[in-house]
């Protein structure tokens, strides 16, 4: 007797699609809707995991844009510590969709404000990307001078970008209540002072995520009319939660929301695609081998797997072998990846 399941391909069944297949050899997991080629001008942004994506795309010869290349002959590690070469702009990690919306609006308006300059030990930091100047700056004026230049450079880059690859990382954020500004890190962690009367913790809900994705997409298309988007969800768990519960539950909650929001948004828009990096890394058939012993950092093998899947599906695997953070299993894949939220781990008792 025929029924809807009788003619399905092997990947439609858990046993033949996952359980009996090597976790590193999944097939048909990703069929691109948004196609890219070597000449496609791509911008990358997002959480720490997005840094792997940008590096791998560059390694494969894809034209990843860089609005702010390191202008000085610094060693690569120093340049990265100063936020160069991590993404298509020197914005540091964009953990939440709201942060992306806020940045795109700032680029549009060019507005900067001294209200978002943090101080620590006589040094000054851009509160909206405090990690990109690890030594701080001399004065609030210097912070604003560099932020203006940053926003101008991003405007030029976004006008060129054909595809914007965004990795959704978190749903938890700290918000400056009077202004509604969302921070990259909790005030006081890198610089600034935490003020419980104005800094409020917030977990973005699914409707908020949906609305922010719509806003972000619209803003991106205000810079370039037919810009397309590829969304991914970072498989990297939360370093810490301030939500009052267990970090494992908070992580699952956050990733579930992000996965749903990204998937639904991609389904609803012809110019938006979802790439399942989250699924590849968290696949139970991998039996945890795609995570380092700290159960948080993603292994070099996993990064290679993710990007190999992406490039193969895009028809770019034969052009150049993907070269993610490291193809050498002996190397730490987190080398060169800059994650401000890791600082929270220092507060663990």
């Amino acid at each position: 007797m025929s029924h809807p399941y009788s003619d399905l391909p092997p990947e439609a069944f858990w046993r033949s699609g996952v359980a009996e297949v090597d976790a590193g050899a999944l097939t048909s997991l990703y069929v691109p809707k948004v196609r890219i080629g070597l000449q496609t001008r791509i911008a990358t942004a997002g959480s720490c995991f997005a840094q792997h994506i940008g590096r791998a795309l560059r390694g494969a010869g894809v034209a990843v844009l860089d609005a702010e290349p390191a202008p000085l002959t610094l060693p690569e590690a120093t340049a990265r510590a100063f936020g160069y070469g991590l993404f298509s702009g020197r914005y540091g990690n964009i953990h939440t969709v709201r942060q992306l919306v806020q940045l795109l609006r700032d680029v549009q308006s060019g507005d900067v404000s001294e209200a978002f300059v943090w101080e620590k030990d006589g040094r000054f930091y851009d509160a909206l990307r405090p990690g990109v100047e690890p030594l701080g700056m001399d004065s609030p004026e210097e912070v604003l001078f560099l932020r203006r230049a940053h926003l101008a450079a991003l405007g030029r880059m976004l006008a060129e970008a054909e595809v914007f690859v965004f990795t959704l990382g978190l749903t938890e954020a700290w918000i400056d209540e009077p202004t509604g500004r969302v921070f990259q890190t909790c005030p006081g962690v890198i610089a600034g002072q935490f003020d419980p009367t104005r800094h409020v913790f917030h977990t973005f809900t699914l409707p908020e995520l949906r609305a922010d994705l719509e806003l972000a997409f619209g803003l991106l298309r205000s810079f370039r009319k037919r810009m397309r988007m590829i969304l991914t969800v970072s498989p990297v768990p939360l370093t810490a939660t301030a939500g009052g519960g267990h970090v494992l539950a908070a992580t699952m909650h956050s990733k579930a929301l992000l996965r749903v929001a990204a998937g639904e948004f991609a389904d609803a828009h012809r110019g938006v695609d979802y790439f399942p990096s989250y699924e590849i890394v968290t696949n139970p058939a991998a039996r945890g081998r795609f995570f380092e012993p700290n159960q948080r950092s993603v292994t070099a093998e996993a990064v290679q797997m993710v990007m190999g899947t992406f490039l193969a599906a895009q028809g770019l695997a034969d052009v150049a072998a993907p070269s993610p953070t490291s193809a050498d299993p002996g190397e730490d894949p987190e080398d060169g990846v800059v994650c401000e939220d890791l600082l929270l781990g220092a507060f663990a008792r």
């Binding site: 202008p71 000085l72 100063f82 030594l135 701080g136 210097e142 560099l146 230049a149």
Partner: peptide, 27 residues
């Protein structure tokens, strides 16, 4: 960087990128 008289007069120049004084010092 901002501490340069040329920058104070708005003459950064298209070929030179603005950087922090700290980063320039690091270089």
């Amino acid at each position: 960087f901002l501490g340069l008289p040329s920058v104070a007069r708005g003459k950064v120049g298209g070929y030179a990128a603005p950087v922090s004084r700290a980063m320039f010092g690091m270089a």
